[in-house]
Computed example of a mutant assay.
Amino acid sequence: MKTLSSVQRKQQACVLSVADTLEQQGREELQGFLQCWFDMQYHHFPDSLLLRFQFENEAALTAAQPALRKWQKRLSAALVRKGVVLKDMRRHLVFTLDGPDT
């Protein structure tokens, strides 16, 4: 596995910090929330960033769906505070039943 450059490590630290914060908030505010995970391609950051909120079942996912826009705004605001601007916040956070191993 290739080691990350210093810029890539900074990108990763930024996203991990934001993801951890949002995950903690998700656990407190969303019923059936399991975890937050992300994936990105460093050479296309921030456009390639996709944060996923995983829910335990379809009912929890359906109940949380109306709040999706609010969470997308939270992600965008948290990244702006870190100096990262998302062009279209709707593309970077989704609610799902799939886990990172799926």
Rank of each mutant, 00 (worst) to 15 (best):
M1C: 01
K2S: 03
T3S: 11
L4I: 07
S5K: 01
V7I: 14
V7W: 10
R9L: 08
R9M: 03
K10E: 14
K10S: 14
Q12S: 02
A13H: 09
V15H: 07
V18S: 07
G26T: 03
G26M: 06
G26W: 09
R27T: 00
E29P: 09
E29G: 10
L30H: 08
L30C: 12
Q31F: 02
G32T: 01
G32A: 03
Q35C: 09
Q35V: 04
F38Y: 15
D39L: 08
D39E: 11
Q41R: 12
Y42N: 08
Y42K: 00
Y42V: 04
F45E: 07
F45Y: 15
F45W: 13
P46R: 08
P46L: 10
D47R: 14
L50F: 03
L50W: 02
R52V: 04
F53S: 11
Q54H: 05
F55D: 11
N57D: 15
E58P: 01
A60D: 03
L61I: 15
L61S: 14
A63P: 01
A64N: 03
Q65M: 14
P66T: 00
A67S: 10
L68M: 12
L68S: 01
R69V: 11
R69D: 15
Q72R: 15
K73C: 13
K73N: 15
R74M: 09
L75M: 07
A77M: 11
A77F: 13
A78N: 14
K82A: 12
V84F: 09
V84Y: 04
V84N: 07
V84P: 08
L86C: 06
L86I: 05
K87W: 01
K87I: 04
K87R: 05
D88V: 06
D88F: 09
R90N: 13
R91G: 12
R91S: 14
H92I: 01
L93D: 06
L93T: 09
V94R: 06
V94G: 04
V94Q: 08
F95G: 12
T96V: 05
L97M: 06
G99T: 02
P100E: 02
